[in-house]
Design a protein around this nucleic acid. Sequence first.
DNA 1: AGGCATTCGTGCACACGTTCACAAAGCAGG
DNA 2: CCTGCTTTGTGAACGTGTGCACGAATGCCT
Lengths: 226, 226
Amino acid sequence: MPSDRSRRRIPDATVARLPVYLRILTEQAEEGVDSMSSDRLAELAGVNAAKVRKDLSYLGSYGTRGVGYEVAYLVYQIRRELGLTRDWPVVIVGAGNLGQALAGYGGFGERGFPVAGVVDIDPGKVGSVLAGVRVRHIDELPSIVQAKRVSIGVIATPSLAAQDAADHLVAAGVTSILNFAPVVLTVPRSVEVRKVDLAVELQILCYHEQRRGGGLHAVTTRSATA
Amino acid sequence: MPSDRSRRRIPDATVARLPVYLRILTEQAEEGVDSMSSDRLAELAGVNAAKVRKDLSYLGSYGTRGVGYEVAYLVYQIRRELGLTRDWPVVIVGAGNLGQALAGYGGFGERGFPVAGVVDIDPGKVGSVLAGVRVRHIDELPSIVQAKRVSIGVIATPSLAAQDAADHLVAAGVTSILNFAPVVLTVPRSVEVRKVDLAVELQILCYHEQRRGGGLHAVTTRSATA
DNA sequence: AGGCATTCGTGCACACGTTCACAAAGCAGG
DNA sequence: CCTGCTTTGTGAACGTGTGCACGAATGCCT
Ligand SMILES: NC(=O)c1ccc[n+]([C@@H]2O[C@H](COP(=O)([O-])OP(=O)(O)OC[C@H]3O[C@@H](n4cnc5c(N)ncnc54)[C@H](O)[C@@H]3O)[C@@H](O)[C@H]2O)c1
Ligand SMILES: NC(=O)c1ccc[n+]([C@@H]2O[C@H](COP(=O)([O-])OP(=O)(O)OC[C@H]3O[C@@H](n4cnc5c(N)ncnc54)[C@H](O)[C@@H]3O)[C@@H](O)[C@H]2O)c1
């Protein structure tokens, strides 16, 4: 009963690692590798081998003892579990600095996330074309979402406008949001939000940085690099 | 003995939330709020109130029972603990799509992370100026790092070049790296790496998206969007 | 001054995540 | 077929993170 397995909930921590395994396995497949041990995959992914096996075990028992995992099959299973067997078009809200970089980034389309549209509120930006995509007015959001069956929205507006952007996305029917603005969004519980906050990342880095060098040897450390 | 408190290790999960509290508290301070309860802060940060109190308790007992926390003082304490009492200049490696967006983003400088330099390997990009910063050749990395006392590097190169970029950063003396390329970097254990991987974020979103719609009502849901 | 309402700080129990360690399962080679 | 080697899959122990619940402290009001 394999469908039983696919109903089982996968731990968040595992879901966050599956994409990493997937990328590595895909790369390896392209290089002609067709079988791989959990040890090797763990090494490439920078994690513990037992963790890899436990993670993969949530997908089912697709390994062969004494041998390892068949790369192609694993790729298929992970893609299936993550829902990557079809494209997920995304809309980008905010055609500024970041929005343009995102729209112009080919990596999304390649990975199954084609840009279904870019919208902005600024009439000066609406109509301009970036990376082959014409920027449209935010009022067109609902029709884009419906026409292209979009369920994922990306917010790349200034912080102050992010909640407004989220409201528009939710109203248009989007149910998942990736937010680049450094604010906490309020959305219905049925909508999932993930945040990418660069300032937070940098601040975490510098906490450790400060902690390391912040001891008695701060000055010494600095001059040692010379 | 307050310095005793500052030596205590703060849990990773807490370190990751402190920047969020900090931003909220800073904003509130600007709006004239000078005292705040854990309940209110929790609401604004979208977390549990007990968690807020426990997080803040790692900094010391800076709250007043029956009243709350003095915003300005808390801001100071968090900044001190995170090591934000001084600027942390960063170097950006890779002046492409993303590197330009990052360099042009004012938010970094404002938050204490001035761009000390942008380097690239492409002679066609070296010398060009973006957002007031001249792009320099990657060979100049060591001198930039030393001259500006940089300990944080940002990698915004294509995946294939990311390890090379990391090697250059490490060789130049950088000890913390924020990596935007979707690869696992190999660095000495003394160097801390954090990764921002947009594709992973999107894939996590679509796992839940698929799971939600993937139940018994998959087809219904699909056609209902029409 | 005393009582009351409020809010912090934290002990405790529980959930989640990680790692070890090992039996079970497979392959290869004689 | 049997032995030995490899590698999976998972139980169990441990560590980390979360949230409740409540005592302790504080301010305010009478
Ligand atoms: N640029 C970066 O490298 C970078 C880095 C980290 C974080 N961010 C965050 O990403 C967000 C965008 O940054 P940016 O540099 O692209 O800003 P930006 O100012 O260049 O672009 C913002 C765009 O959003 C549009 N906009 C404003 N209000 C809108 C609304 N209500 N609806 C739709 N569109 C609206 C503006 O017209 C503008 O085109 C910010 O929140 C920023 O903090 C950016
Ligand atoms: N653009 C985006 O929105 C976006 C989104 C998600 C992830 N990313 C990731 O960010 C990275 C950069 O993306 P991009 O769109 O800016 O790419 P890009 O191709 O536009 O820019 C890459 C830059 O790096 C430089 N470079 C190449 N090799 C180098 C080396 N060895 N040392 C120094 N510089 C080198 C190139 O000359 C180029 O200027 C990629 O790994 C990509 O996967 C980008």
